[in-house]
């Protein structure tokens, strides 16, 4: 092909995001460009470590990279708003909303790359050995958090966080080092944790943030007609399409638990939801502080996110 691009990500090639997100997207680009753009996928950190994927796009190690900005705590403060709990109800229209919102700031916060898509996973839930209904239930618990923001939330609630990788989580839970974890629904089955944690707080607890980035140098080197092809594949609609396969897969895990006699899902009342929101308020405050420190108008950015979520009907 006229343009050969390398796409690097850090998940196994069998993870739903590759067959259901990345491959159809690359295929569509190939078709739309009349075969002139060919994208080769390098999964499983073959070209570099997961936290280095932003820099890999910047330095041209890969032309397209799949990045979790949360892996470098403190580097992308605006984007980390997405990690704060109880904001978004689903990951499909949610992805489109995040795309539209973050596009306003992408140029500033990620100046070395073209932010092509936003790809949150299906909102994760709180899974535990003993029931968790209200924030006070977390006090004294050891929790394996999904990311640094959740870790801070856990310590706000009086619990302590246990830093282990997702594959190690099962062991930590079974030997009693951890009592609970936050995780998307079907991943609980994928890692065999369904056999240990039987209590589930059924509310869209948190969203994680993944993005697909394109190296600016690679993009600028394209002729105008191919730039248009890429632009057409970096839209809020594509963010939604890209996110749907994985989100549906995770959501299927929730249904499986509802149908299973071994699992108890608890849906909190409105009053309890209010308690949770109240408990999470300090997270938003410290987010505002971080973002203000970097010279941005935190309130305006937050308001814009809320408005966009509202517009797409995904505000929690």
């Amino acid at each position: 092909a006229e343009v050969e691009w390398r796409l690097s990500h850090w998940l196994p090639a069998t993870h739903p995001i590759q067959p259901q997100g990345i491959e159809p997207w690359a295929e569509s680009i190939k078709e739309a460009s009349g075969g002139r753009i060919n994208i080769t996928i390098f999964p499983a950190q073959q070209l570099g470590a997961a936290p280095d994927h932003y820099d890999m796009a910047r330095d041209g190690i890969a032309d397209v990279t799949y990045v979790n900005p949360g892996y470098q705590a403190g580097r992308f403060p605006i984007a980390s708003l997405i990690e704060i709990p109880f904001q978004v109800t689903n990951a499909t229209d949610g992805a489109a909303a995040m795309h539209e919102w973050y596009a306003q700031y992408a140029e500033k916060e990620m100046p070395d790359v073209k932010v092509c898509m936003m790809n949150p996973h299906d909102p994760g839930a709180f899974h535990s050995k003993t029931p968790i209904h209200v924030p006070a239930d977390v006090s004294g618990m050891n929790v394996r958090p999904a990311n640094a923001t959740i870790a801070r939330f856990v310590s706000l609630l009086g619990g302590s966080s246990v830093q282990v990788s997702a594959p190690e989580a099962r062991e930590a839970l079974s030997k009693g080092v951890a009592d609970a974890m936050t995780f998307p629904w079907n991943s609980v089955y994928l890692f065999g944790i369904d056999q240990i944690l039987h209590q589930h707080l059924d509310m869209p607890f948190y969203a994680s943030l993944q993005t697909l980035l394109i190296s600016k140098a690679s993009y600028e080197a394209l002729p105008d007609d191919l730039k248009t092809v890429i632009d057409d594949h970096c839209t809020p609609e594509w963010s939604k399409t890209f996110s749907t396969g994985w989100a549906d897969w995770e959501a299927a895990g929730r249904q499986k638990m509802i149908d299973s006699p071994d699992h108890t899902l608890y849906e909190p009342t409105d009053d309890e939801i209010a308690l949770w929101r109240e408990a999470a308020a300090p997270l938003l405050d410290s987010w505002k502080k971080d973002v203000t420190a970097k010279g941005y108008d935190a309130d305006a950015i937050y308001q814009s996110y809320m408005d966009t979520l509202e517009k797409y009907g995904v505000k929690y």
């Binding site: 570099g48 890999m56 041209g60």
Partner: peptide, 17 residues
């Protein structure tokens, strides 16, 4: 194969990881 700038960039991040 890829270019010198990216190749040297590997030296910046990979050994430290």
């Amino acid at each position: 194969i890829v270019g010198w700038k990216p190749a040297l960039a590997q030296l910046a991040s990979s050994p430290i990881r």
